[in-house]
Amino acid sequence: MRPEALRRRDLLASSAMALVLAACAGPASLPPPAAEAAPFFTAEEAATIAAAVDRLIPPDAATPGGREAGCADFIDRQLAGPYGRSADLYMRPPFAEGIPQQGPQSPLTPARRYRQALAALATYCRNAYAGQEFAQLPPAEQDRILRGLEAGSLHLPGANGHAFFELLLANTMEGFFADPIYGGNRDMAGWRMVGFPGTRYDYRDYVALHNQPYPLPPVGLAGRPAWHQPA
């Protein structure tokens, strides 16, 4: 059998699988998830992620950074839950090298990819910075490392640094903009920054009011602080 034929067969099989999975999943209407009891990260991992998300979304005068907005907590809870276990993905071989449009094809769950990459990053930092951890480095050095991972020019021992950076960046943005019930977007900081009013249903009263700020504060699935003010 020619290699092209094999690849095409794999492609067909995987598209069929994708269709089946899409049909099974249906529209998601799950109740709000409870916070996972046990955190996923070790103390050192948590410190590294908290430092990294604050470099990916640094704080400024108007908006808190990734750390204060809870992105690290969001990622921790996601990795401790079904996402971290790839619970909704088909995770059996063969694991072919996919084309970019096919998305991640890693045999590793996100939890294992974080664990592996964070261990490699810790080793790298201890070797390169005289035993220091990532979180202890000055911001400029942290940026240098993150840029190196992003460009693929900095190689981590035993982990795909570029893929890890892409994963971390995506999860950080998810944590910054997802509903606060998932642990990130604390005080709806991400929504306030972009002016997103949250889970509101209807804007008929405002549709015709052009070039005026929308007056209502953002609201999440579990409400907003004003819901619990005393009478």
Partner: peptide, 16 residues
């Protein structure tokens, strides 16, 4: 009328 009640009404009921 509780202020909390007004906030919830505005966010969850007033649209309809």
């Amino acid at each position: 009328t509780p202020l909390a009640g007004e906030a919830i009404y505005l966010d969850r009921c007033a649209a309809c």
